[in-house]
Design a binder for these strands. Sequence first.
DNA 1: TCGATGTATCATTATGCGCTGATGTATGGG
DNA 2: CCCATACATCAGCGCATAATGATACATCGA
Lengths: 117, 117
Amino acid sequence: MLMTAAPDAVELQAKLFRGLADPSRLGILQALRDGPLAVGEIVRVTRMKQPNVSNHLACLRDCGLVTVEAKGRYAYYRLSDERVGALLQLGDELLADVARGIYECTRYERAGNSGHG
Amino acid sequence: MLMTAAPDAVELQAKLFRGLADPSRLGILQALRDGPLAVGEIVRVTRMKQPNVSNHLACLRDCGLVTVEAKGRYAYYRLSDERVGALLQLGDELLADVARGIYECTRYERAGNSGHG
DNA sequence: TCGATGTATCATTATGCGCTGATGTATGGG
DNA sequence: CCCATACATCAGCGCATAATGATACATCGA
């Protein structure tokens, strides 16, 4: 949507953040903050299924958040830029300060639902 | 998913980024970088439907990314913290450098598939 | 009070997308 | 060549959620 003057910029940025907006991808990125990892390692660390990890890695690659280096049968992934880590760090700080209450963020269900705020 | 030791932290952070991961919400946030705006103004700037704007604002509020100040019939929204702007800024910079290619990020369709799923 | 304006919520529809099991492709060892 | 390992892709399923029109609620003006 959003037919503003420069829709591409906003949409591209949204897609970038979308790379960070999923628990699985976030887990992968956090794991990669310690350094490059092969897919199998990521699978072990995150306890996700291997195809799931591969899919998210493909997404993260397309978004430019990670890069890959093939080495024999192994594929080592790493964060593409230190600013990816900075983004995670900033998000973490912001979370601690202003977003401590984050609910479900399921826009339409804030009222009628029992346990909410 | 992600049954790691501290699933909550990752999921909360994912939800925080989710607030930034939608073109509509991103458009709203960008509009608010210039200062507080009433809902009606946001509707005009973004050209979105009013209920849609309200819904996204509710989401952003729950995520702690914006705050609201009621004033008569008007509700003025503003960014809750300067770090929200910093996050947008950092995302913008990262976009310019490493994510210039961002595709659809529809994980399963990268291989030249025209259609969808 | 009545009507106009501003905002929030509801119900519905449609679809993006995450998860899974199965399968394809490449590398390395015997 | 045959098999095991490592990773990527496919097809299908199910759910979360974004967009919309209708509507409820509150405020202001006449």
